[in-house]
Design a protein around this nucleic acid. Structure first.
Length: 297
DNA sequence: TCCTCTCCTTGCTT
DNA sequence: AAAGCAAGGAGAG
């Protein structure tokens, strides 16, 4: 087995514990002095190294420094995502969490993992995902071949037929293109994802955010529902209204979502933010009187 | 079309 | 010990 080691430069704050335990990924484990996980076909051990660097040891197929930096999003200071959301600075406990790095995970693994997340807690999700994986995460084609009973034995329960159906659809979909979901209109991508069994709006947004680098995706789960209802002072607001409200947090709102998720889970209710005072940017070519443009079919 | 309710597995918590 | 709860989704009414 191949071995390699890298020293990666880190821009901005980095909190490995937070990054790997916050519920965005389910296969990283705390080991002495760092965290171990799987990236591609490699087993990886990451350790804080001081002086703005991260020590990474590789066992297996070395992804290379660039891929590691990309996966861990070390080339980007998380604080840039606060640029359009300065108001979050006033939320107690928020700023110290900016060492959280939103990982750039494999889209298929993200999709399969979050299908397992329905009505489960992080520990149960971890059990299911670890049960599915032996080293490298199995491709859709591999899961498409197993029986539903095999998945139930792993503890997937009612999610078993969902994962099987989605694996078959992805494996069979010759037109299935992750690249298209990554770069095309986000509403189209969302529609394609929610057409899969076991994938509703929340899981689709998780795949877009964690697996396809769409930081404008804003998954609303029960914790974010509470958090945004509190921040916006809209106690009875629906998920769609909350997602719309969150647009004020800017194009990096998905990144901020992950921090808010952790904060709300660990620190309880959040304070209300001041009402929006900024004027909405004027859409070119559309008169201000045209309040409600017809929805696209 | 949209809202609400129920069911669906499992395992840990209260 | 029975009920509640956990990164939801599908189907019915």
């Amino acid at each position: 087995m191949n071995r390699a080691s890298h020293t990666l430069a880190v821009v901005g704050p980095l909190d490995l514990d937070l990054t790997f335990s916050c519920g965005q990924a389910f296969r990283w484990q705390r080991v002495d002095g760092g965290w171990s996980g799987v990236i591609g076909r490699a087993e990886v051990l990451a350790r804080p190294n001081g002086a703005g660097t991260l020590a990474v040891e590789i066992l297996g197929e070395d992804p290379g420094e660039d891929s590691l930096q990309q996966y861990l999003r070390l080339d980007e200071d998380p604080r840039v995502h606060l640029e359009h959301a300065e108001e979050l600075r006033s939320v107690p406990g928020f700023l110290p969490l900016l060492g959280l790095r939103l990982l750039r995970q494999d889209p298929w693994e993200t999709l399969a993992s979050f299908i397992c997340s329905a009505a489960a807690n992080i520990r149960k999700i971890t059990t299911c995902v670890e049960g599915l994986a032996r080293g490298a995460f199995p491709p859709a084609e591999a899961i498409a071949r197993v029986r539903e009973a095999d998945l139930r034995e792993l503890g997937l329960g009612f999610r078993a037929p969902y994962l099987l159906g989605t694996a078959r659809a992805v494996a069979a979909g010759s037109a299935w293109s992750w690249e298209r979901l990554r770069s095309g209109p986000i509403e189209d991508a969302r529609k394609r994802l929610t057409a899969l069994p076991g994938v509703g709006p929340k899981i689709a947004d998780c795949v877009l955010l964690f697996g396809l680098d769409r930081l404008e995706a804003f998954p609303v789960d029960r914790w974010i529902r509470r958090a945004t209802q509190e921040l916006s002072s809209r106690r009875r607001a629906r998920d769609q209204e909350l997602a719309d409200w969150a647009r004020r947090l800017g194009p990096g709102r998905g990144y901020l979502q992950q921090i808010l998720f952790h904060l709300r889970r660990t620190s309880g209710p959040l304070p209300a933010l001041a009402p929006e005072t900024r004027r909405r940017p004027v859409t070119a070519g559309r008169p201000a009187t045209a309040r409600r443009p017809a929805r696209a079919r």
